[in-house]
């Protein structure tokens, strides 16, 4: 009942937040200078008044902004995200085409980063102030500070150009591969470098976060008590330190999960990965408002959803959180 109440309360809040975000996004996007019709004319290297008027009429851009907003919100409530100005295709279809690629990339990078990062962070904390700790911390710092596109290009140079082990870009081989298993292996081969590029950055974040969190927790009184009671060190580490230290990690992981949709623009660009981040990036420059708003909406839904999951997970990890509310 406790969790059902929480879920209902959360749902109400979530709806209000998503609606507010939709309205806000709509207004913010329109603040950027530029007119989609002129952008399209610019891309075409040709324009006349009839062309511009036609584009504005077709997409309702000639109507007052509040009418456009009301129309948009009304459509979103019926799950219609409108059409792209450039391609004239339904935005929902375009997003669905791109979403799986992005989720595959960011999901892989995310799981990789979470597992490897938390593990290495725990090792660094357990071996704090030793040579191993210094090496792990330094390597993490390097990956944290290095621009993602540079890491990507470096990996391409080493693994594609020099060694020829992995393809430098794309999601599939150009010559179609037959058989489901081979197709999956082909995609996997293409996935390694972009997922590693994106993952390495987050590994670095998790290493630093886990290490810091565990060391903080290790200095707390109750841990000293556990040790004074004579508990074996591995038990102190797993049952006492790690559980508490997990809370900031869960919180960060939740925040990152919400960012899964739009968080890979750079990697998608370097590796020509056909994802949604790149779609949004291009839409921004082309002032293709509906695509942009569609991506924002999905991102907002993801953030809200994962925030709820995070809240729930934190409650499980630390029952005091729930009891306080």
């Amino acid at each position: 009942m406790h969790y059902v109440g929480f879920a209902l309360q959360w749902l109400m809040k979530a709806l209000a937040v998503v609606l507010a975000i939709t309205v806000l996004n709509f207004l913010i996007v329109r603040l950027a200078p530029g007119d989609p019709a002129i952008v399209m004319a610019g891309e075409a290297g040709a324009a006349d008044s009839q062309f511009l008027a036609q584009v504005r009429k077709d997409f309702g851009l000639d109507r007052p902004i509040y009418v456009q907003l009301a129309t948009y919100v009304g459509k979103v409530l019926t799950l219609d995200l409108g059409r792209s100005y450039r391609t004239r295709r339904p935005v929902g279809d375009m997003l669905l085409e791109r979403l799986p690629a992005t989720l595959l990339l960011t999901g892989t990078a995310y799981i990789f980063a979470l597992i490897v990062g938390a593990l290495l962070g725990a090792i660094a904390a357990a071996k704090a102030h030793t040579f191993l700790d210094s090496v792990l911390t330094a390597v993490a710092l390097v990956f944290y500070a290095t621009p993602i596109f540079w890491v990507g290009l470096l990996l391409i140079l080493v693994f594609s150009v020099q060694l020829g082990w992995l393809p430098p870009f794309g999601m599939h081989s150009l010559i179609p591969v037959k058989g489901t298993l081979w197709q999956m292996l082909d995609t996997l081969k293409h996935l390694v470098l972009p997922a590693l590029t994106l993952g390495l950055f987050y590994v670095a974040v998790y290493v630093r976060l886990t290490r810091a969190s565990m060391l903080d927790t290790a200095s707390l009184e109750y841990v000293k008590t556990a040790r004074a009671k004579g508990l074996p060190e591995w038990r102190v580490l797993t049952a006492h330190i790690l559980r508490t230290a997990l809370i900031p990690i869960i919180t960060f992981a939740g925040m990152q999960a919400g960012n899964l949709v739009g968080g890979a623009i750079v990697v998608e660009t370097v590796f020509a990965w056909p994802g949604i981040g790149r779609l949004a990036f291009d839409a921004l420059f082309q002032r293709d408002y509906n695509i942009l708003l569609g991506v924002f909406l999905i991102s907002a839904l993801m953030v809200v959803f994962f925030n709820m999951l995070t809240d729930l997970a934190v409650r499980v990890a630390d029952p005091r959180v729930g009891s306080r509310t």
Binding site: L153, S160, V161, P168, F169, L174, V270, A272, R278
Partner: peptide, 20 residues
């Protein structure tokens, strides 16, 4: 003919160099 969308200019140059 395949027209491949490669967003990054450096990646396009590399693809040409590699014969992709």
């Amino acid at each position: 003919i395949y027209y491949r969308f490669i967003p990054d200019s450096a990646s396009r140059a590399l693809a040409l160099e590699q014969g992709e």
